Structures are given as C-alpha cells and as structure tokens.
Amino acid sequence: MGEGSPSCTPPMGAGLPHAPITQQTNVHQEQQKPSWRSIFDDDLQKKMEILPYLPECRGAKVVKIMEEDTIEEVEYWKHSIVGYLVGKRSYFYHISDFLKRIWKTAGNFKLISLPKGFFMVRFDDENTILQRIHTYQGRPMILKRWDKNVNLEKEILGSVPIWVQLFNLPMHCTGNMSIARVCSQFSKPLYPDEATLARERGGFVKVMVEVDVHDELPEVVNVDIHGIECEVFIEYDWKPQLCRKCNGYNHSEVKCPRLKIRNHPQNGLSNRKGNWFHMHREKV
C-alpha cells in the first residue's frame, strides 16, 4: 500500500453507537429486570401468593388491624389455655414431654411456646384440663383460659398450691378429717392424691395444700391422738422461696439479681397480687 493511498481503517468511533444511545439502552435494560418471582414456574408462584398486598398500608405510620382480620384465628384458638410454671423457668421441650404424657387422655391437642416462659395448648375441649390443679416437679402450673385479651404477665402470687407428704400418722388417722386437721396447722388443705383417697398406701399420705408464700413452712407438726402425743413429719415436693426484693421465686434476697442490676424493670411480673385459689377460680 502506497503512501498516497487512502487508509482502510475507519476513523475512531465510526460506525459505533453514540454515548447518549448507550445510556438509553442501559435505562431500557434496567426497566426490563425481572422480579424474583419470575424465576419460579407458574405453579409455584400461585402457591406463594397466599397473602394479599394491601397498598393502603404502604408507608402508614400506624397499621390498623381490623376486627374481621382476626375472626379466623379467634375461632381457631377459642378452646385453648395459656399457662406457666411458678418458679424457675424450665426448658419448653421438658414441659412439652410432661404435658403430652399427663394429658394423653384429653384427646388431640397442640402445644406451642410463648414468650416470657408461657406456653399455649389448643384442645378439642379444654374444660376437663381446667378442673384440676397441675404441678411439674412439685411446682404449681398456673393455667388460664385463653381469649384475645389474655395478659401474658406472671402474677405476683400471695399463695400457691403444693403437694405435701405426711409421715408417722397411724392408719386410723389417715382419713379426710384427720388429714385436714394436720394440714390446717400450716396451710389450707385442698384434696388428697388418688392413692391416699383409695387407701392404697400405708407409709404416708399425700395431700395438695395451699400455702402462703410468706410463711415459714414447718417440718414437724405435733398432734394429740386421744391423749397420746406424737410428731407428724412433713415433706414438701417444692417450697415457694420468695424473694422480698423482687417478688421472684427460687432465690434468696442475698442472691437476688437486682443486687447486681440496679433499677432494672421487673421482667415478666405484673403488679397484680392476690390469693392463688381465688385467681384460679376466676379464670375457670
């Protein structure tokens, strides 16, 4: 190729799109980006579209839930109870295994965990469960009938139900009136267990009693049987050790967590005080 021949190389930029066209193309490509749903097939997309999009809630400072929004859930949970254990919180799966064992005759039920140590149980019929007192490892289980306004706060109880065992009672002193007299010395007697009621145990009697959480519970009660004095020894499945600093259970005032955390709000406790028996009866 000679020096005077025209060059076959096109000038730089010749035949290429101008910069403004490139920008328009990029904008068009941005608008064509697919949504994440489009990567799934149609059947799966239909299964995912369970919840409606409500544009009136978009950006709202306060989202208002309507009464009709809750009808289905209120109907579903209406035969449910909520409960918790007095004292130290236990692992949910331990409580779950225990309740499944003792309530196996109550028919089908669903058990779920709630915040603050509460649990919730849905029954076909909850009335039979609420007709008796339940304990776990000696500690009372507080059960309430569920409704949409139920308060998930643990009450500060003035009294609690516990199991006690009375030893050294002669066989002729194991009837209801004899047991009631001994238990009334330190508590409000409620009822004996099935073995005691059926006279199937000779070594001791077992009784559910209601005790004041502030009382010192005795280990021995002196009794007079037709002029003969003897000692009745008492064993407790669980004692309510109440801390007067925080109204919590299972620790002394010396070991109260509030000594370490000053002015910390009392988590999981309300200011409601009262007798356990009356509160239980009101809820049932």
Rank of each mutant, 00 (worst) to 15 (best):
G59R: 01
Y91M: 10
M48V: 03
T128A: 12
V182Y: 00
E73C: 07
H172W: 14
L259I: 07
L54H: 04
P189Y: 05
S96M: 08
Y53R: 13
S5N: 06
L197A: 11
E126T: 06
D42L: 09
Y76H: 11
I95G: 01
Y76I: 09
A60G: 05
R89I: 14
P55T: 01
R58Y: 03
E30F: 12
K64E: 09
I50T: 10
I102F: 07
R37C: 04
D41Q: 05
S187N: 08
F186N: 03
C57E: 07
Y93A: 12
I228W: 02
P6N: 08
M208E: 01
W103K: 01
E229H: 02
F277S: 05
D124M: 02
P140T: 10
E56D: 13
H18E: 15
N250L: 04
L51T: 07
C246M: 06
V121R: 06
L130Y: 01
Q131S: 13
Q32L: 10
V209N: 02
G158E: 10
K47Q: 15
I65L: 02
I225G: 02
F119L: 03
P192A: 12
F233V: 02
P115G: 08
G138F: 04
G15M: 15
K47R: 15
R89T: 12
E155R: 13
W146I: 00
H18Q: 14
Q185R: 09
L242I: 11
N271K: 11
W146C: 05
N108I: 08
F167K: 12
F167I: 08
L269C: 04
L130Q: 00
T196P: 03
S80W: 00
P240W: 04
E72N: 02
L269P: 01
Y191K: 12
G15Q: 13
C57Q: 05
V205C: 14
P240H: 01
I65P: 05
I179M: 15
M66A: 15
K260W: 07
I81F: 01
E30T: 06
T174R: 15
R199I: 00
C57N: 14
